[in-house]
Design a protein around this nucleic acid. Structure first.
Ligand SMILES: [Mn+2]
Ligand SMILES: [Mn+2]
Ligand SMILES: [Mn+2]
Ligand SMILES: [Mn+2]
Lengths: 220, 220
DNA sequence: ATTTAATTTTAGGTAAACCTAAATATTTTA
DNA sequence: TAAAATATTTAGGTTTACCTAAAATTAAAT
């Protein structure tokens, strides 16, 4: 199996396993990779033979230790390149994903490690997602969803749960970026929206928006 | 035809055309790409249909205008990434080729152009090779071979004609890099070697070495 | 100008990653 | 628990980039 294709499968399975504890389902993998389910079945057999996944027919698949390692290497590269694109080349966080999707497949340990040093060993990417270290260790963060916060809480935006450009552009427009502090002034029971204060401005965030915002304590 | 494969063919043909004015021969392309001649014949037919080359059976092929454009885009990306790897990540000029060989295929105009700006629009790569501009224009340089220089000439190293790591490492060892000034103290008729003075040191360069060194006038 | 040698193309085949559609297995609903 | 719905796998087929070996062409050497 061709490395780039293997990598895309392994990464997709990794991401799906984070949502469904059970594992990744054939149809979901097919959707993620934009191929047909039959193709996925074939590929799963190969990935299993190669030792990257644990696979029993008709059951959701999980990554093996070897598969996890590979997934974390790809995610490390993806996120480091995203930092590069934003910090060094000045791209917006809504523009970088397709480029990182290609750059992540370039597999030279020296390149990754030197890039890491060049970027000052960042711990998170421009979307607030943590970057695995050289050994594939992923610092687990304890982010809360904005909708889980209580009235009058004062929090800081640390991540997002939706990476669509349109969502990122909306956040830009609202002046919401990583590190932005916000105070919850009011929670509207009717539609779940909330009134927040950011800097000097106050405005409403729809539930759909706040559901996709992750926050941490506003320790200063 | 898959973009990466097309790009490797087009680049190989471009390079071969620089040597043989006639064009690129099937066998030479096969050698450059490490495939069999039969495979090249097939591919040439496709590249011709796609309009990247001018192809008559049993004749050496040349790039069309469209093919040249593509070649220069790839070469631009290759050389810009090489500058990045050396200037920003601190790699040696003997280590970067395989990485650039992969990076050159990442095709986002914005990425290339911003990288160019980030690197201060370099005009040459770490090997002294000129970098095509955004419009594919390649400033043609007028380098002379060191062996073509005369006794007591004072010149500056501006390029090389051999990119093998072992050659680059030898130059490192001798303290010869781009911009190094050298004075030709003596030319030995017997083996074509020359005695050169670099800084305070003097030593002999074999003909094999000096044949692969390109120099320009030592204007200061 | 032949014959020989070298080069290139063509013909026929393989393997990988995809597809569609039929068959099978699992899960849900009645 | 049997039928219906959903999910997955399998079977058979396509395309692309590769291969080998034979055939055809071109170039070189008698
Ligand atoms: Mn990818
Ligand atoms: Mn990201
Ligand atoms: Mn390449
Ligand atoms: Mn170079």
């Amino acid at each position: 199996m061709q490395p780039r294709i293997r990598e895309n499968y392994v990464k997709a399975i990794y991401k799906l396993c984070q949502k469904n504890k059970e594992g990744a389902y054939t149809n979901d993998i097919a959707l993620a990779l934009q191929v047909k389910a039959g193709t996925v079945s074939e590929s799963l057999k190969k990935l299993s033979e190669e030792g990257f996944i644990v696979y029993y027919k008709h059951r959701a698949v999980k990554l093996s230790a070897k598969g996890q390692q590979l997934a974390l290497r790809i995610i490390r590269r993806h996120r480091l390149w995203e930092v590069f694109l934003v910090e060094k080349l000045g791209f917006g966080w809504d523009e970088i994903h397709p480029m990182a999707e290609e750059l992540e497949h370039i597999d030279f340990d020296q390149l990754t490690d030197r890039l890491d040093v060049f970027l000052d060993k960042p711990s998170v990417d421009p979307h607030g997602d943590p970057i695995p270290d050289k050994n594939g260790k992923l610092s687990k963060v304890n982010y809360r969803n904005l909708t889980a916060c209580s009235l009058h809480e004062y929090v800081s935006m640390v991540g997002i749960e939706n990476h669509q450009p349109s969502f990122l552009q909306l956040l830009d427009q609202l002046g919401l970026r990583l590190g932005t502090k916000l105070l919850i002034k009011e929670i509207i029971p009717f539609d779940g929206s909330m009134l927040v204060k950011i800097g000097k401005k106050e405005f409403y965030l729809s539930k759909t928006v706040s559901e996709n915002i992750l926050v941490g304590p506003h320790k200063e």
